[in-house]
């Protein structure tokens, strides 16, 4: 891990329903290159909204998100170019059901990175091999289990060779027996030095893999620190309260 800051968030606010619902009420944090940040918190705490603001799937109401020195909330910025560098994995996988696995993985590289079909497929096959799904390359998403789908979703994002990976509760929609296989892939990714921001309820994963844990509640960052600090010595009563309930 270096001290090189890849994403810098300043004063981030997000309101829904014309301000009636304030999901984020001023969030500041920096994500460093190679860092694995796990965001935890009760549901409705704004953690998913925070993650979705990082690649502007939600447009912030106020504040800035600076990625590699560029303020991406500036409307003049080509957001698509920046999203290419930020892979995202969703709770519900969101694979494209009308395409084979291979097509799911090569569509964006072919269209955006101007890779040849062969080049993109070679890369995709290599990634599939890594997650042990090379034999399913020509299957359709509906023929896969949930765990397999999520592993595909991860490698689909990796095909774009992103600088950062964003995970939005990647195991919440999975049957318990499939959680492990997905977390294993994520661990492997972390070990390889990928910068990751993970919103999850998997406290074991957070404790084991995170460099930094952020606890959010009611649209604020309440507390952040190493897993050791957050899980073993939480300072804030709300953090202590939350951890008591989930651990």
């Amino acid at each position: 891990m270096t001290t090189d800051i890849i994403i810098s968030v300043k004063g981030l606010e997000k309101h829904f329903d014309e301000g009636k619902l304030k999901a984020l009420r001023g969030v500041d944090t920096d994500i460093r290159r190679g860092e694995v940040v796990v965001v935890i918190g009760p549901s409705g705490s704004g953690k998913s909204t925070f993650l979705r603001c990082l690649n502007l799937l939600e447009e912030p109401t106020a504040g800035t998100v600076t990625v590699e020195g560029v303020n991406i909330t500036d409307p003049k910025v080509n957001i698509n170019k920046h999203r290419e560098k930020m892979g995202m994995v969703f709770q519900h996988f969101n694979l494209f059901p009308h395409m084979t696995i291979l097509k799911n993985m090569t569509l964006a590289p072919c269209k955006l990175l101007k890779k040849s079909k062969q080049e993109a497929e070679e890369k995709a096959m290599a990634l599939l091999k890594r997650v042990g799904l090379a034999d399913r390359a020509n299957a359709y998403p509906s023929q896969l289990s949930g765990g397999q789908k999520q592993r595909i979703a991860i490698v689909r994002a990796l095909c774009m060779e992103p600088q950062v990976m964003l995970f939005d509760e990647p195991t919440s929609a999975l049957d318990p027996e499939m959680v492990g296989e997905v977390l294993d892939v994520m661990k492997q990714l972390a070990e390889e030095g990928m910068t990751m921001v993970v919103v999850t309820h998997e406290m074991g994963f957070a404790r084991e893999v995170a460099d930094r844990v952020i606890f959010m509640d009611e649209g604020h960052i309440i507390e952040e620190g190493t897993p050791e600090e957050i899980f073993n010595h939480p300072q804030q009563p709300r953090t202590q309260d939350f951890l008591k309930k989930v651990l």
Binding site: N55, N80, E84, M88, N94, L95, M160
Partner: peptide, 10 residues
């Protein structure tokens, strides 16, 4: 589906 596409940079 839209979000997945957009998040890939499409």
């Amino acid at each position: 589906q839209t979000e997945a596409g957009r998040s890939l940079g499409l």
